[in-house]
Design a protein around this nucleic acid. Sequence first.
DNA 1: TAACCTATAACCAAAATTGGTGATATGCCA
DNA 2: TGGCATATCACCAATTTTGGTTATAGGTTA
Lengths: 213, 213
Amino acid sequence: MDKIKILLFDDNKLLREFLAEIINDTNNYQLVGASENCLNLENDIYNANPDVVIMDISMPKMNGIEAVRKIRIQFPELPILMQTMFDDDDNIFNAISAGANGYILKHADSKHLLQAIQDVYEGGSPMTPSIARRVLNHLQQKAHEKEDFKLTPKEKEVLQYLVEGFPHKQIADKMDITYDTVRSHVKKIYEKLHVSSMTEAVVKAMKNNMFNA
Amino acid sequence: MDKIKILLFDDNKLLREFLAEIINDTNNYQLVGASENCLNLENDIYNANPDVVIMDISMPKMNGIEAVRKIRIQFPELPILMQTMFDDDDNIFNAISAGANGYILKHADSKHLLQAIQDVYEGGSPMTPSIARRVLNHLQQKAHEKEDFKLTPKEKEVLQYLVEGFPHKQIADKMDITYDTVRSHVKKIYEKLHVSSMTEAVVKAMKNNMFNA
DNA sequence: TAACCTATAACCAAAATTGGTGATATGCCA
DNA sequence: TGGCATATCACCAATTTTGGTTATAGGTTA
């Protein structure tokens, strides 16, 4: 069985050495490189050909998040495990949307660290419960704030078309009703949504994700 | 130190007994109840007064997700740990948006289970790496499709105000420029976004979440 | 230096939206 | 049966937005 090849990016020399020691004490893992910055990012990866990248989130010159973004362009499938000092790091979401796969703390003990490496290698996304909590809260807020404005079916249909950018006249054609009827619906919509223009209505509709959008 | 009081909802008798055994073998945890359905949900919780609820995601009569939703109304802060048979359960996202705090597999060994209980009790959100991966993918897709329209700072400012529902005239006042200058910016924005109306521009801005939303 | 981008501003004419105030018809429900 | 919500349509007048064209000034860059 081949060892899992690991490439490390971290500006702290002590941590690089510490990690090298942990990894080389095992039979299943192998450190194929450790850089203190991401200036030769693509080359480093190309030469080392790792199975997993471990990336410090905050580094001089180019930070870890920018690095993740660049890696994703050339190596879309390469598992990336982010490391941070604190679990309330505001960069969590930036790292996630940049395409990082896992997220752990720097002071994790060697057992947890090795498990996390194994997890990202297998396609999972290891993260501490506290980080997961922040991620979930983020999701819940998104799904949360939806109001019920009690629009009738026709009103919903009209609003849908407004969101899609159609002017009243075209909506009338599509719905096979007159321009003035569309207007009647629009007025009711404004009343129910407590707005007074198309843009406001459309923004409110999207914020309450009333449609797939 | 008080024990962590646990209330269990699961329709499988064997699993209820198994869990009772695990928990009662410890010093830090205490099972204060185990129900096979959620018909007396509120009463069960009120009487048992648990620190943590463990909920099976699929149950007869009322499923676990509906139950979570109900719990959240009366007990907004009560930690809920969901259990499922499979980590590709499509109900993950429904459970999350209903307000569940953690998500683990039913065949987790007792050590992991107890750790997960501890984690939710402490405000974390334990989940398996594979479940976390699905959650992250979900987030990444949301954050994904953002284009760079290369708007200038002023154009971004104008667009921001449009999203907030202000008419040109008020934007002119806010930015301390003339109405016609606002119009110039708006025209440029339309050109760069390939649209031809405020609603289209606003929708595009929001879809590419160019602002806080 | 010339070309280009940004920000500013103006004018005209056309099109679209908005507010207000009506009316008619249908169906539901108490 | 009478009230209520829904859906339809109409007209007036005011406001807002849009497309097109032009112009000036400051900054950057090839």
